[in-house]
Amino acid sequence: MKKIALVALLALSLLLPAFLAMAQDDLKEIKSEAFGKLQRPAVAFDHNAHNEKAQIEDCLVCHHSGENGVQDKTTGSEGTPCSECHKVKPTDKKATSLMRAYHKQCIACHTEKKKGPLACGECHVRKK
């Protein structure tokens, strides 16, 4: 019995990234639990619709990894929550905070591509 449980657990852990990847399909908004109480409305974000519209196929465009404040664009980080690396209040001064990471990630790309929202309220839309 114990063995079965162990194998199941192992299988589950192997499958976890896949589950998470699948979970992206249902992602409708970006809302990190790490922030706690939010000051602004969470950003509406339909993962697949966005990528389809933006013609992004490579996960690495967004899901980078990195170490010691240096971004690594060769290794993916799908499935790892952003807040894993980007702390809300980083202790290391060089590190990028979670809010800054989100803002940079989205706005830098929108600016570069000259497409997509830039100003605060364009993403943090109030629910009417």
Partner: peptide, 12 residues
């Protein structure tokens, strides 16, 4: 702009 009344993009 904060309350997103009116045209937000114009307002901001």
């Amino acid at each position: 702009a904060y309350y997103q009344l009116g045209n937000y993009q114009v307002m901001i």
